[in-house]
């Protein structure tokens, strides 16, 4: 499936970029991230466990590899996730553009989803992916506004060593995994 869209952040690109480097911010917007470890420079492995609505799923293990990274403009993620309920494979591409004094994020993920969740979850797939993407991005935008107003969630100083891409990975991962898990009614 293709998940694509744009999202306007009411903040300059640099602010958005910086935000995306902050894992603590993202963690707040992302339920169910249990673990995410950097195993190589551009490769991450993690485990997610999310429960929403009637669906509560077992853990998914996820591997993400970053490529085509042009800071602070764009990057591509190759995603592989699997668990007892199925798997996902695919790529996601994220771009940031200046737009009217703010930032326009363009995202496009092409994900193949298989196994049990592919077979029984189609009715909800589109709604879930759109809802979760929107909710995640709206949460980020709120944080952008907080920062512009000088209010911080107080996590920006934590984990300075964690790179921006980890944060971005978390965001997109969450979207991916939520899609995976939420699809059944």
């Amino acid at each position: 499936m293709i998940i694509e869209g744009t999202f306007p952040f009411a903040a300059p690109r640099e602010v958005v970029w910086e935000l995306l480097q902050d894992p603590a911010v993202l963690a707040q917007a992302i339920p169910g991230a249990k673990r995410l470890d950097r195993v190589e420079d551009d490769r991450f492995e993690g485990e997610m466990h999310v429960s929403v609505g009637p669906v509560s799923a077992a853990a998914f293990s996820v591997t993400v590899t970053i490529s085509d990274k042009v800071s602070p403009e764009r990057f591509t993620m190759t995603i592989e996730g699997k668990g007892p309920l199925g798997f996902t494979r695919g790529t996601a591409r994220v771009e940031l553009h200046d737009r009217d004094g703010g930032t326009l994020m363009k995202y496009r993920a092409d994900l193949k989803i298989g196994g049990k969740i592919a077979g029984v979850g189609q009715r909800m797939l589109d709604s879930v992916s759109r809802t979760m993407t929107r909710q995640g991005l709206e949460a980020l935008n709120r944080e952008v506004q907080n920062r512009l107003a000088g209010i911080s969630v107080g996590a920006t100083s934590r984990s300075p060593a964690v790179r921006w891409k980890l944060s971005m990975v978390l965001l997109l991962l969450a979207i991916v995994v939520l899609i995976l898990i939420l699809r059944l009614a």
Binding site: K112, I113, A118, G119, Q122
Partner: peptide
């Protein structure tokens, strides 16, 4: 029977 281009069956229940 709806198959996607990876050979996944997308309606494997009497719901769909």
């Amino acid at each position: 029977l709806v198959y996607d281009d990876t050979g996944q069956l997308l309606n494997a229940s009497f719901m769909d």
